[in-house]
Design a protein around this nucleic acid. Structure first.
Lengths: 360, 360
DNA sequence: CTGTTAGCGCCTTCAT
DNA sequence: ATGAAGGCGCTAACAG
């Protein structure tokens, strides 16, 4: 239907846009049209100063007229550079990362385009599978570089890619102070400091925390932000619950915190998932988030907007993250000596769950 | 750092895996290692019967030993086929499509891998931008085919791609009964019939509907499912509200329905976004979803799991959608005469919002 | 059954 | 300033 391979190249066939069966305009077509060599066309486009201004003019006009675009495969073959960046997608889990993936991919695709690159996806569920998928893309010369998301301490992907000698940048730190790693991360510690300061500004003095301090540097880091803010604001040491990052754990955590003698009136959480669990926990006790207990999350996931009440959360600056990742890769590909590392502050998005006013 | 372009090919350099500066094993390397021509190696891999079993054996052994993988660019250049499928990602909107994007992409990447293909992303925000992005991928010979999501009536992308003669398949119908279109869609009408029957089975007789019947065939189709079920179950004609697909509209719709004299005791919605709005509307009136009023949504978005109470919803079989899309594209690329079209049933996922039991 | 030839479209190198 | 030659890695077509 859309294209019938059995009748390639019949002139006038839909999709026929040049003298070739496949309908693509090549360097040679432009050259013939102008009456110069293919080489001059290539130069006019890639080394403008190697060609006289006049011919350059004529060539560019022909390029525009014929709609010439360089063939990606030919260029990649010749230059040993595909202008493709490998990215993994994984099965959606109901956790923070998954909810943001589309926004992140969009931002990354946009930044890549700015660098003249495209994203190629690979699919993998475990770390081993992911490494294998990267290896395949690399062995088939499909990519110039990779962007890894969710880098963590003891990340096996990092030594693997490094050993292969392929440039890569990570969203998330490795937490081992590796000076040779190109990374971008969001400062969760600063984020929880901001959330804590915000609820304190609403008059709350007993600020509890729900997070997952074990097993993850990210969790420890966010918790540290809460602790630091409590200390610097002279709040009494708040209660905290450390749980895995899932909804029911957040729900249970809310009950545990509120059952205590010295129950907090505000709860800052290390993720939206946990915060939404806390919201449910509150509602199960007949309490209203915001009016009775302030609650904040982390990630500003779409869910945060849609929960009842709206969840105050910390927005990750994904556009900036994507931009810095691509810039870091460009540096690596250009042979930069020292890798870029950038730590970005999340932005507090205030909604009803942390405000005393009537629940809207 | 990860790779220093200024010292390519020093033997023993990380990333050095063959005799070439870039460290990739080529057909020629394998051929030399076995003592045959490059052509025979190619044949052993692509036309096994054109080579004697014994040499084939030896060649495959060498391929495995050296870790040969064909160079994607070279193969694409030679075959005029990139084995890349173009897919668009757009800025996340808080609507149904965006929340599912990552799941869909994952499923699609998985299916593509089964067909020996990869996904290449392009980024675009409006329809015009999207068409331009496709055009660029096509002109640079970057893709063999496209998968479009969210096809709708009067979709300008469809005639554009068709005119260019490039194979494509759409997630969503065009609704103009186009027999030449390869599409996969989820049967929203069947979905709303199922949701309506489910709440009826809970004893509800007054089943209202909140959807967006104007401006979208999808909305009209889903509404029709609700109407059909009411008719076939002998339920009295239920009240309905037609609104745009957003959270606040759902919230307002709940109030409008419940203010009426003959207020429904169950509300089936055409999207999770609307259903979540309805949940908030109920909670604002002090009503409990499930116990007081049954509510169902559509999409089974991550949010449905995390809302309070959990939202009964209709899960789209995205794995099957992805599989059928890729199968449809393979058919097109193989020159099939009649395009595949498949309509898949969503699966009702029951949670507390539609159950009379105590809100868990 | 195997090898040689040629060329996909592009760009670096080297003449002119 | 321009063009010719050659090759990136692969495979269809044709020898042998």
């Amino acid at each position: 239907m859309e294209r019938d391979p059995s009748t390639p190249g019949a002139p006038g066939t839909p999709g026929q846009r040049g003298p070739h069966p496949h309908g693509h305009v090549t360097l040679g077509d432009v050259a013939r049209h102008v009456g110069v060599s293919a080489q001059s066309v290539s130069n006019a486009l890639n080394n403008p100063d190697r060609v006289s201004p006049l011919t350059r003019e004529r060539i560019l006009a022909a390029v525009a007229e014929l709609g010439y675009r360089p063939n990606r495969s030919a260029r990649a073959l010749r230059n040993q550079r595909s202008r493709l960046i490998g990215v993994k997608v994984e099965a959606s889990r109901d956790d923070r990362a998954a909810l943001l993936l589309d926004q992140f991919l969009h931002a990354l695709a946009e930044s890549a385009r700015g660098a003249g690159c495209h994203l190629i996806l690979c699919q993998a569920d475990g770390e081993a599978e992911e490494i294998a998928a990267y290896r395949e893309l690399l062995d088939t010369t499909s990519v110039d570089a990779f962007v890894l998301s969710g880098a963590h301490a003891d990340d096996r992907r990092i030594p693997a890619l490094r050993e292969w000698g392929v440039p890569f940048a990570t969203f998330g730190r490795s937490w081992d102070h590796d000076p040779d790693l190109t990374w971008v991360d969001v400062d969760g510690r600063a984020g929880l400091r901001a959330a804590t300061a915000h609820v304190a500004a609403q008059g709350h003095r007993h600020v509890g925390h729900v997070g997952w301090p074990q097993g993850s540097e990210v969790g420890r880091d966010r918790r540290r932000g809460w602790l630091e803010a409590c200390a610097s604001l002279d709040l009494p040491a708040g209660a905290e619950v450390g749980v895995p990052d899932d909804f029911d754990a957040g729900r249970a955590a809310a009950h545990r915190l509120l059952d205590a003698a010295d129950a907090p009136t505000a709860v800052v959480c290390s993720s939206d998932t946990l915060a939404l669990g806390v919201l449910r926990g509150l509602s199960e006790r007949g309490l209203h988030a915001g009016r009775d207990v302030a609650v904040t999350g982390f990630d500003n996931s779409p869910t945060a907007t849609l929960s009842t009440p709206g969840l105050t959360s910390l927005r990750q600056p994904l556009e900036q993250v994507a931009h810095d990742l691509v810039a870091g890769l460009e540096d690596l590909l250009a042979g930069a000596a020292s890798p870029q590392q950038s730590l970005l502050e999340p932005e507090l998005v205030v909604r009803a769950s942390s405000l005393r006013g009537p629940t809207p």
